[in-house]
């Protein structure tokens, strides 16, 4: 059959494509399917760009309204009272930093040790742990606050930076666990084999090969968790509450006192009818976003150094 057609074509007896207008090969927007294609291309482009408008708006507003009020005084003074001029949010910067640092102390060792277990095991327990970690990532942040309220505030009898740190560490933990497990599993298995082949114990393999090789990836996860925790407000409103004073008083750290944080300060000041407070909220938002971005960028820079499989 097929050869027949070819022969006849060559002989010029019968050309099945004789009636076809080959100008149709040219792209033309007049044809409906091409037009629809082009329109849909444009539509997705427009939607994507539109999705980025809020980002630019937020950044511009932060730089404009926040940048205007930002000064050394704002970074180093205590929050002003109502109708008071000046002031700043120095104690809130300290509070956020201290709470995040304490949360790191809780969540990072916990998370990495769990990740070490997960990366070595494929049993039912590991599966349940992984499932729990994934559940925690989708856990509403306010419920971490409710938990810390129930577990720490009620138990110790008051709002404190410790309660805030506990709430933040619950939010950081799943990110640390899941990214660390990934980082440890990314270590080439032949490196692990080499260590075991030389007679390394499990602990030696982990400490001398797996963790040193995986450390950039683990730190990436930690920085992502820090970025998330630093910006969290909901879990702090009723655990650390707020304070108009420094965390460091009379030569000692008041970890068991209510503590200011940038996020809660923004929340409180945004709702106030005073111009000075609103301006400070914008300036504090700028500082908070910069802190979060720095943590994110540090994480990304580290992830570029992860050894590939």
């Amino acid at each position: 059959m097929a050869t027949n057609v070819v022969e006849r074509n060559l002989a010029g007896v019968e050309d099945p494509f004789a009636g076809v207008d080959f100008s149709h090969l040219e792209r033309s927007l007049r044809r409906p399917r091409t037009l629809i294609d082009a329109l849909l291309n444009l539509a997705t482009a427009a939607l994507t760009m539109l999705a980025l408008v809020p980002l630019f708006s937020v950044v511009v507003m932060l730089l404009w309204r926040g940048g205007k009020r930002l000064s050394i005084a704002a970074l180093t003074s205590l929050p002003p009272g109502p109708l008071e001029a000046g002031g700043g949010f120095g104690n809130a910067i300290v509070g956020t930093t201290v709470m995040v640092a304490v949360a790191i102390l809780f969540s990072v060792p916990f998370g990495i040790l769990t990740a070490v277990y997960l990366a070595q095991s494929n049993n039912k327990v590991a599966e349940v742990v992984r499932f729990c970690a994934k559940l925690l990532t989708g856990f509403p942040s306010i419920l971490a606050g409710v938990f810390a309220y129930g577990a720490v505030v009620l138990a110790t009898g008051g709002f404190s930076s410790l309660a805030g740190a506990v709430a933040l560490s619950v939010l950081m933990l799943p990110t640390v666990i899941l990214t660390s497990e990934d980082a440890i599993r990314m270590v080439p298995s032949r490196m692990k084999e080499a260590a075991i082949g030389m007679g390394a114990t499990t602990a030696q393999t982990v400490w001398m090969v797996l963790l040193p090789t995986a450390i950039p990836g683990i730190l990436t996860g930690v920085m992502l968790a820090v970025a998330r925790a630093a910006g969290e407000t909901a879990p702090l409103i009723f655990t650390a509450l707020f304070s108009n004073y420094w965390l460091w008083q009379h030569g000692q750290m008041k970890l068991m006192q209510p503590t200011a944080s940038l996020a809660v300060l923004i929340y409180n000041f945004a709702g106030m009818p005073f111009k000075n407070q609103v301006e400070l909220a914008w300036a504090a938002a700028l500082v908070l976003v910069l802190m979060v971005l720095c943590a994110n960028l540090a994480g990304q820079a580290l992830s570029a150094r992860q050894v590939q499989r």
Binding site: A51, L52, P54, L55, S57, V58, M61, L62, A227, A230, G231, E232, T233, A234, A263, I266, Y267, A270, A281, W282, A285, L288, V289, V292, L293, N296
Partner: peptide, 12 residues
């Protein structure tokens, strides 16, 4: 977009 804290979105 995901990195910006929700309280900043609230302010905005």
């Amino acid at each position: 977009l995901a990195a910006i804290p929700s309280v900043v979105y609230g302010l905005w």
